[in-house]
Nucleic acid binder design. Structure first.
Lengths: 241, 241
DNA sequence: CGACACCTTGAAGAGGTTCAAGAAATGTGG
DNA sequence: CCACATTTCTTGAACCTCTTCAAGGTGTCG
């Protein structure tokens, strides 16, 4: 276990706005810092937690990139999300006190460990934190609704376009480019998330390149025409007008 | 607005085990009853809340059956879930203080209205309630992971089999038959939930009937062979053994 | 009883998958 | 640091599942 005992200061963390509530007074801020126990480093390819494991903590990603996925006995496998700095993972474990998915680092990563019993305790005292936790969980529910829409009603091009737009949007919110990104996951993982086979993902990338919408060099993607991507997502059919 | 001002007693509600925490002392029980403001009746076909509406409350379903769905400007539509007695809806509204989906009654229904600010307030005092709220939200996240697996990796027969098994299981937990159920939704709504066209749903039902797995008379479904359904869900490929 | 919503079934077609082969990138060990 | 093994990605061709379009049947409600 890569557990480090560096004492943490959320007040100085540049991800504060992403993973902690805003507008706290100093007293509340102090209380909130007690939520984060330690930090933990996770090597690329290894799991932060796995299906079946006892649930103890939520994790705020400080650096790195994760995927969460569920695997069934019969060999099915589904990536349920990709998470980046400032996002919280582990919410699945609350209900049964055991995790129901795997969280795997797609690059070397570091997370802030937030023991859930402590989080609940401080939530009871700091109203803003309580509400923040509720919002994080609600946000995840809404995000998943969006994925259901994607999986239930979009065609391959629409799915990949929506995926790329979502990624750059989140990266941009973290200060990265609006048009360039490096994929941390394989075509197969993208496919699993989007309900497509890796070949279809690859072909769809090629199609976008042909159409001059993106440039793709392996995992490096340069978006040339964001509007085109948006049009692809929104244009399933204008028929009903 | 069909708002009734019947004062509610969770203590006497037979759904208590489904929507409220267990093992409370009388004092806590009293506090918890303050969560439920009033009950509200919703006629078949009308909405409990709609996309864009201000979020104020969560709702515990007392009687009736709902669907939640999201509709986009470009005409896409996705049923994100079907909810029955004892289940909680409205969680999507917390994050932005506005609902992001529609909740429509598929039969005349009654819900307990739980103003969210009051729920948060009492959650801060009653530990068991706080944890309960967290678990309800986590359960919804885990449920949606399951839907993502279904939409992302299952074929039509597998989806419908999983759907039927899920429905009877939930109905059974409420004291109904393990083998007979009445569908409250149309083929189109089932299809929307499962990412299939209504014709495919219909055909797949017919296939199941041919194979002697179920009897179907319109919305009345009699499951003859539960094991066969389970086999369909789990047998995507044994190849990897 | 008639209108409307819902369901079923058929036939043709499209989109995505599967299987297969080869190319490019990445990582590892000597 | 280079060579080799491995993983990842791309592309083609055949196939299959689900969709689309169409028509007719069934059930329900005013």
């Amino acid at each position: 276990m890569n557990v480090q005992t560096i004492k943490v200061a959320c007040a100085n963390c540049n991800l504060r706005e992403l993973c902690m509530p805003m507008g706290l007074n100093p007293l509340e801020m102090e209380r909130i810092e007690e939520v984060v126990a330690v930090r933990r480093k996770i090597k690329r390819g290894s799991a932060l937690f796995s299906n079946g494991e006892k649930f103890t903590s939520l994790y705020a990603i400080r650096t790195g990139f994760f995927k969460t996925c569920i695997a069934t006995e019969d060999g099915r496998d589904q990536v349920t999300g990709f998470q980046m700095a400032g996002e919280i993972i582990g919410l699945d474990g609350i209900v049964n006190e055991h995790h129901t998915c795997d969280a795997v680092a797609l690059e070397d990563a570091e997370v802030c460990v937030m023991p859930f019993d402590r989080l609940e305790e401080i939530s009871r005292e700091v109203k803003a934190l309580q509400n923040h936790v509720h919002k994080i969980m609600s946000r995840e529910i809404v995000r998943e609704h969006g994925v259901m829409l994607l999986l239930g009603s979009m065609r391959a091009e629409e799915r990949l376009a929506a995926f790329l737009l979502n990624l750059v949007q989140r990266l941009h919110a973290r200060g990265f480019s609006q048009s360039e990104l490096i994929l941390r996951m394989t075509r197969e993982e993208i496919g699993s998330y989007l309900g497509l086979k890796l070949e279809t993902v690859s072909r769809t990338f090629s199609k976008f390149v042909e159409d001059g919408i993106v440039e793709v060099k392996q995992r490096h993607v340069h978006i040339l025409d964001t509007e085109a991507l948006k049009r692809i997502v929104n244009n399933n059919q204008q028929a009903c007008l």
